[in-house]
Amino acid sequence: MSLQVNDLRVYYRTLAGDVRALDGVTFSIAEGEIMGLAGESGCGKSTLGKALTHFDSRMRYVGGDVVLDDEPLPIMDSDAMDEFRFWSVSIIPQYAMSAMNPTRKIGKMIADLLESRGEDAAAMRPEIERRIELVGLQRDVLDRYPIELSGGMKQRVVMVIATLLNPSLLIADEITSALDVSTQKAVAETLIEFRDRQLVRTMIVITHDMSILAQVADTITVMYAGKLAEKAATDVIIGAPKHPYTRLLISSLPEVGVRYADKRLTGIPGNPPQLLDPPLGCRFQARCPLADAQCREEPPFVEVEPAHFVACWKVS
């Protein structure tokens, strides 16, 4: 078992109170697995990514534990995490590509980063060049500035940087979202390539775009309002989901081949609840067509079939 997350709770401190962005999340990822993490904006996807790598100043650890390769990951202790960050867990943060330092050449930026971690950048130069080529770029991008690169080129550079030290776990947060379809495909395919070459052992690929996950992920985990709704193999989530939210979500997705005139899709009425003061029980109840009195109690996230986990009273 490569990554295990147990009842993780991380809240944001705000003047109005705690925002319960990650409220009791339990899952595991197997060696070699690419896990897709999907869900509506604000459901807590990035919070999970940050919780496993780098707490931001407003995040508060409330409970739960994380084990990576049989070793506890001290996520609540930023100093202790220095030992793991980049070497064993690495993240490509959402918007990383727009956060690159514009005054540093790519090669220099990578060298600075490696040196700040006590690695010998000069000795790693051949490997850096090899990986730049592996993602389909020319070596000379190392001598260029970020503004000289297109979005897709930048994302591939960020991908190379985050994985230079062959981490066990890579978290890629919305790395294809701002890209055109053709570049999106190239970047998504590098994720698979890196896993297949074992440069990264496991991945969490965060995106709100289910069809990207259908292409790259082995399993998909669906989040809703700070909790997990469902986790299963990709073809099960796409083809035979069980949680009412996943079912409605999948059936609302247009796809080439589906037309308004022939088959009218429908959305999910209503909005996700506020995480400042979430409702008791199942967080989907206000929008769920199957909700009843039992749903005022919280449904547990249980394995209903081998490797298929669902949090819903009406699924067994």
Partner: peptide, 14 residues
């Protein structure tokens, strides 16, 4: 827009 609401706007165009 999120997936759960974008289809409604798309249907509206129809």
């Amino acid at each position: 827009l999120d997936a759960s609401t974008r289809i409604d706007v798309l249907n509206l165009l129809g």
